[in-house]
Every structure is written in C-alpha cells, then in structure tokens.
Design a binder for these strands. Sequence first.
DNA 1: TGGTCGCCAATTTTT
DNA 2: TTGGCGACCA
Length: 685
Amino acid sequence: MFCSMAAWDEGLDDAQLAAVDHGTSPLVVVAGAGTGKTRTLTARVARLLERGVDPERILLLTFTRRAAEDMLARAATLIGRPELARRLWGGTFHRVAYQVIRDFCEVLGLAPTFSVLDPADAGDAMDLLRDDAGLAGSAERLPRTATLVDLYSRCVNTNRTVAEVAALDFPWCQPQVAEIVKLFRAFVARKRSRGQLDYDDLLVYFRAALLDETVGPQLAGRWDYVLVDEYQDVNSLQAEIVAGLCPGGRGLTVVGDDAQAVYGFRGADPAQLSRLAASYPDVTVVVLEHNFRSVQRVLDLANLARPAAGPGLPAIRLRAQRGGGARPTLDRCYDASSEARAVARRILEHHEEGMRLADQAILVRAAHHSDLVELELTARRIPYRKYGGLRYVDAAHLKDFVAGARLVDNPTDDVAWMRLLRLHPGVGPSRARQLLELLPPRRPSGAEDWPEVVAAAPPPARAALSATLPGLLDARSAASAKAKAEAVLALLRPLVAAHYASGSARLSDLDRLVAAAGTSEDLASWVSAITLDPPVSCADLAGRPRLDEDYVVVSTVHAAKGLEWRAVHLVHLVDGAFPADMALRSGEGLAEERRLFYVALTRARDELHLYSPQRLPHHRRGGDDRHTLVQASRFLDEAVLGQVASHDEPSVGRDSLSVGSTGRPATGGSRPVAEAALDLDALWR
DNA sequence: TGGTCGCCAATTTTT
DNA sequence: TTGGCGACCA
C-alpha cells in the first residue's frame, strides 16, 4: 500500500467517536434505533485492540451468539488482525456463564459433568414432581407446566418471591401459592441432586461465583473491559452480574435504548438502564440520535410511536441523515386473507422495481399471525424463510439425541432418562417413572444392574432396552467427541426409526447433527451450546445461506430486533393481535407493546407498509369460523394516521384464498464456598 | 383399573 | 409438538 489507507474509524460522527475513544470510567451509550450502535460498539473494541489491550481481557455480552461473533470478527478485521477475534471473549450471558461455571465448578460444588436443561426440560423436571405424593393433596389442579416454569423463572430473574410475582403477573395462580412454593423447593432440590442446571441456574451460579470472596475478584479480574449490548433488556440478576464483573463500573460500557425494551416477559426491566446511569458518580452518558438507517418520513412516524424517556435518560428524537423518502402506507384490509393478498402484491411490485426479495421483511407480533401470508406467498411461489416461533431443536428427535448425549456424561440426569426411556415401545410416562427408581442416582446402575431394569420393563420394551445401557457405556468409553456422538446415534437409530412415523427422515436429520457434533472438541460443551443456542432451522446446520438465494424474511418483531430491511411490511395491526390482548391487561404490558411497535417501525430503511384487517375470524367450538368486526389498533391514532397514506382495500370477500375451515451432586467433594449465594430459599415464601 | 396409544385441537414474544 | 379426551389392552 503506497498511499495512506483510510482510517477505519472514518465516517463515525462526534458522538460515536466520543464513545469509541472513551477511557475506563463507566460509559453508558443511549442509542436510538438505527444510530449505529453496533458499529460504535465494534469500533470501540477495535480501538481497544489497537491500543494494545490484550484481547483476552475484553468481554462482550450480547443477547444472541451471532451478534457477539459478528461484532468481534469485525472489530479484529477493522484493525487488520483477524486472528485476534478468536481470543476475544464474547457471547450471551448464558454462554459465558456456562464457561465460567465449567472453570469454577469445584468451588461452586458442581461436578464437571453437570447438564444444562432448556426450558422444556425444566418443564419435564417440574412434571416429574407435580403429582408426587404430598403435592397431590391439593384439591385444585396446579396451573399448566409452562406457566409454572415462567413463574419460577420470573422469581429467580427478578429476585422476587412467588407471592409477589404471582400477585403482579400471574393473578390466577395466587390461591395456590403455598403448593407452588412447595413444588419449587422440590424442583430446586431435585436439580441440585442430579447435577442439572436450567437457564436460570446458569445465571444464579455465575452471580454466586462473583459474590464469592476469593473466586469473585479472581473472576472479575479476568477482564479489564466489559461491554454489554442491549442493556435495556437485562433483568436484575443480569444487572448484578454486570456490577460484579466491573467493581465501581471500571472498564464498563453499556449500550441500550429504553424505548426498545421488549423482554419484560422474561423479567427484563427497562429501568435498569436509567438505574445504571445513576449508580456511578463518574459515569459518562453519550447519546446517539443521528439515524443512519431510515428516511425521515419513516422516522417521523417512529418518533410519534417512541415513548417518553425514562427518568434520568435523555429524550431522543431521531433525525435522518437521509432526507425525504416515501410516505409510509396504511392498508385497511377487509380481512386477513385480503391482507395477505395485499402484502404479496406489494412485495411483487417492489420486486419488479428492482428490490431483491431479501431486502423485504414481513414482521408479525406473534408467529401464527403470518399463517395466511405464508399460504399466499406459497401460492404465488414467492420464496420466504421464517424466523421466530417454533425452534428446530424442538423437533423431538433432536431432543432425543441431546438427551442421549447428556446421559453419556451425567447418568443422574433424570429428565434425559425419561426422554430416552419413553422411546422404547410400551413405555409411557408412568412406566418410565417406575424404571427411573432403578437408575442413578437411586442405584449405581452399572452393567450389573441392567438385567434388573430390563426385567422391570413391560415385555415389548425388553429387547430394545437390553441394548440401551450397553450403548451408553460404549459411548462413555469412546475417546473422541466424534466417536461419542456416533455411539449415541447408534443406540438411538433403532429407537427413533420405530418410534416415529417419519423415522427415516428424522434419522437423516440426526446424521447431519452428529456430523456437526463430531467436529467439536468436547461433546458435553457442544451439547450445552446447542441447548443454549438452538439452530433456528435445519439450514443453520448446513452453514450460511448461499448468496444467490433470494427470499423474503418472515419474522416476529422480537426476532427482528437489531436487523433492517429496505422494505418492511407490518401486518395484523388490530387490537388483540398487535397490541396483543394478553398484554392489554396492564398498563406496563401496553407500554411494552408500544415499544415493540417502535422497534418494528424502525426496521425499515426506505419503505414502510402497515396493514390492518378490519375483520378477523372468531374461533368457535364446533368448527365454523365467523368473521367479526374488530377494533382498529390503538397504535393507529390520529397522530399516526396523519403521517401515513391510507388505502381502503375494496371489500373483496373470502373467495380467492381457501383457508380451510376456515443441592449438590454426590461427586461435589471440594469446598462449596458459594453456598449462601446459591440459596434461593428466600424466594420461596 | 391403570396405563398406553390414537385422534383432534391449539400455541405471545425467547436466552 | 404437546395436551386433552376416549378406546383398548393386561
């Protein structure tokens, strides 16, 4: 290179540069949507590296693994040292927690073979307990398992008691608080005794390690710089972890926007951002409000939707670097089918004007709101991919594999045993429970106990079952991750083939999964990684999509956070759908819906199209769907309507689209210093 | 009679 | 895919 290369930070504005060049005192960056938040965070990491900071002493916490990887890779590339990316620390809170717990498991009183339970597994564990003796006495039935898991999680993540959380967020559970408390106690004890950590436990143990007198400083001392993205979405447990990582706020950078806090249902509290800004005397607050993404016409609408700033936080008014642009549109459609047709029509119009399909997205509040749109896209042969909603890993056979792999390391994992046992013919939930009594930790269950287990099983299961334990022992003695994964697959193959109607398709899926697992260094950490960050689709396992593929993205607004498209189509703007009726009960819920609306609007760069069906099918028992007139979305108020070009769809009927009718594990051993911090008993009151 | 298996309906948002 | 409800088997 003979002339001076352009500096990599050229094009950053003054506010962004202030954040990038900031020293070690605590820094809060309040960044409106589209103001180059990711770019700023990336540049700050690059600047630190350029200054010679050891990459291993920089930690970046984000809400998705992909976000962390992308940012770190970019930062290292910016300064021309791509090889440094691998040495930077980064990931989700949960992933980093897993790593820390592996490193400090002895001190935390955990065997290194602990397993990670996803929320569905946690529900299974809860199910194992809910009708145990002692709990069965209550006259009323306990709430649904999923509700219980949510309630539990909310208590742990927000440091509140069951009674408090039930009163506020789950009023229908209040009469049973006493039984629920009992259940939660048993749930914790059961997990502890079997070496199982659910998502919440990962954070609890992370916090415990930080609070420990000796380990805490050691752990906090690992990193000189901690950068946290999307801080408005942390809950109080995560906020405590951040505080523990950066005593006095030294080296701490957080980036966030209180108007984009949309994870209240997960215990996040948008007030954390303003609380943090107030909690350090030497804090610097940098405000980013120059929007580099959208045209001003889109931002005019977004500014109307944006809620007032939280206490102590600056009011933000987004200003576009790109003037003018097209006025957003609002289509009042006859019903959801006519909405679907309107969306497809406009997507094709943009496509004919030269916009790639991949530059357009259809955003929905709830995954099923796109059902009719997807039908219409399929009918018109418009390729699309859907994000959010059902996860690929929820496919039963993949969970079967993960369960098998977990048992290789942790034979006391009863949830995994349940799953594996139920694959055997003639074994249902209750038989599996009986067999569980004969398995670890109740019994050692080495090879010598196995004939007893087989004998206790119903006859149809015996043949298959007699191969299962030897299969697991094979897997345990295998040397490499690859060999282990293959041994697990070998033991699953006949079970999966016989148990599922589409057995062979599932088996070829598993082949792909096992190939991926085989490339890891250590099967246990691969399994926990996939538990914490499940692939969104089958294609994820095959690598990134090919560049020449062109498809429209269909996504929930939540999954669309942080992303952008040239054209955004936002559908189902109707009270009950968006805002969701589940949220309309409380004022806080409605406020969160409004923030979600703001997030949706600000994904659009050039074109923003809103659609509002005027009638929705009203589901009745007995089958026939009646269309009832619905209330327009309260987001479409006078002010908003003043900013959009409205179209009334002609009331074509329901003709063209056919819609169908219509504790500690036994192996612990060493010094459990952090026990007090792991004690959740105070919450079970 | 208890438990498994088959059929039908429904599901906010996600680490 | 799970959950609820009814049918059928030991």
